[in-house]
């Protein structure tokens, strides 16, 4: 690196022309899209939209989807898919609010509820990973089975009744603000930052990218691909568990319908954010922007009293346009300068 004294200007020029096609360029596009939605929000909603309270509302709503999407980013970067995160989230909220769990929390500490949710999520994820890696079942099918199974189990456990969180301390903690920002939002921020470091600064992240980019090459390079796959799905389950805690904090309700179809929103946010569905490239920053785009869009539509059906149409359009743009970039790799 230090030896390249010969022609730095050419190098700089090359990097500038490829800049727009690189990850920075992709993220810029997302920022512009988000800005556009905000402009529409300001025009149609004025003060109601631009209000700090409304911004916090958007972020609070983004938290649950956001946390799940961080986990999903790893799964998709590794070339996999996880259809079960929504159901697993539902199961985690139910399991964490059963009479047994709450009694234990009562006699000990509300943190029991948190740990239960995390444990349920992680366990479900590890099971997914083991079935995919060692059972050699396609991820789509294995997680589809978990999607059905976890939802059913949640219904059995809760008897389809809503279970309220009894612990006032729990509710108080998750409804509180820290430095003027809700705890839920902090949760998203912390998970996103941790996710960024994990993907970009650790061997775990590098291996995830390598497996997604070329699983056979990764295997022949001596990476324990199967074990790593189990970890990746375990991580996705863990984020579903964290999101379940967030969901309980926001609504205090443990029901088997929690997180219904959330996996589709998460996949959409991840892919719109620029992570390749085929694997081999992932971006946490892009995922966060993808989540914010969808959540802000919902907020603008709700504020204008527009039907959720119209929202779905807009969402569909965004997904298609984003992926079409991505493919055009993918056809011209940023590295051929």
């Amino acid at each position: 690196m230090n030896t390249q004294t010969s022609a730095p200007p050419a190098e700089e020029h090359a990097s500038r022309s490829s800049w727009l096609r690189g990850s920075a360029g992709r993220n810029l596009g997302l920022v512009l899209a988000l800005a556009l939605i905000c402009v529409v929000g300001v025009i149609t909603g004025g003060e109601r939209f631009a209000d700090w309270g409304n911004i916090l509302t958007i972020l609070r709503l983004a938290a649950v989807l956001g946390v799940v999407s961080i986990g999903m980013t790893f799964v998709i970067t590794s070339g996999g898919i996880d259809l079960s995160v929504g159901s697993v989230l539902g199961l985690a909220t139910v399991w964490a609010t059963t009479l047994a769990t709450q009694t234990m929390a009562d006699s000990f500490h509300w943190i029991v509820i948190v740990f239960t949710a995390l444990a349920v999520g992680t366990a479900a994820g590890l099971i997914n990973g083991a079935i995919i890696a060692y059972g050699k079942v396609v991820a789509f099918i294995a997680t589809l089975a978990m999607m059905a199974g976890a939802r059913g189990l949640a219904e059995i456990i809760s008897d389809r009744q809503t279970q309220r969180v009894q612990s006032n301390e729990f509710t108080a903690f998750f409804r509180a603000d820290f430095l003027g920002v809700p705890v839920l939002v902090w949760m998203f921020v912390v998970v996103a930052i941790a996710g960024w470091f994990l993907l970009n600064r650790t061997t775990f992240g590098r291996r995830t990218v390598a497996i997604g980019g070329n699983a056979e090459a990764a295997r022949l390079a001596g990476i324990k691909v199967k074990r790593h796959t189990v970890y990746i799905y375990g991580l996705a389950g863990l984020t579903a568990g964290i999101a379940a805690v967030g969901m309980l904090g926001r609504t205090t309700a443990g029901t088997s319908t929690n997180g219904f179809l959330l996996e589709l929103d998460a996949i959409a946010a991840v892919v719109v954010g620029g992570t390749l569905l085929a694997g081999g490239r992932g971006t946490i920053f892009g995922t966060v922007l993808g989540v914010l785009i969808f959540t802000t869009l919902t907020n603008v539509f709700v504020m204008n009293n527009m039907s959720s059906s119209a929202q779905l149409v807009a969402k569909g359009l965004i997904i298609v346009v984003a992926v079409l743009l991505q493919q055009r970039f993918a056809n011209k790799p940023s590295s051929t300068t």
């Binding site: 590098r206 990218v209 070329n214 056979e216 081999g280 490239r281």
Partner: peptide, 29 residues
Amino acid sequence: KSQGLVLDEPVYRNITLSSFASLARAGWL
């Protein structure tokens, strides 16, 4: 191409892919 390299990753990452034991500390790159 199909068994050796992660084609979209930079050359140096392809070169170091098997050497995290010496080039990374406790999982940190």
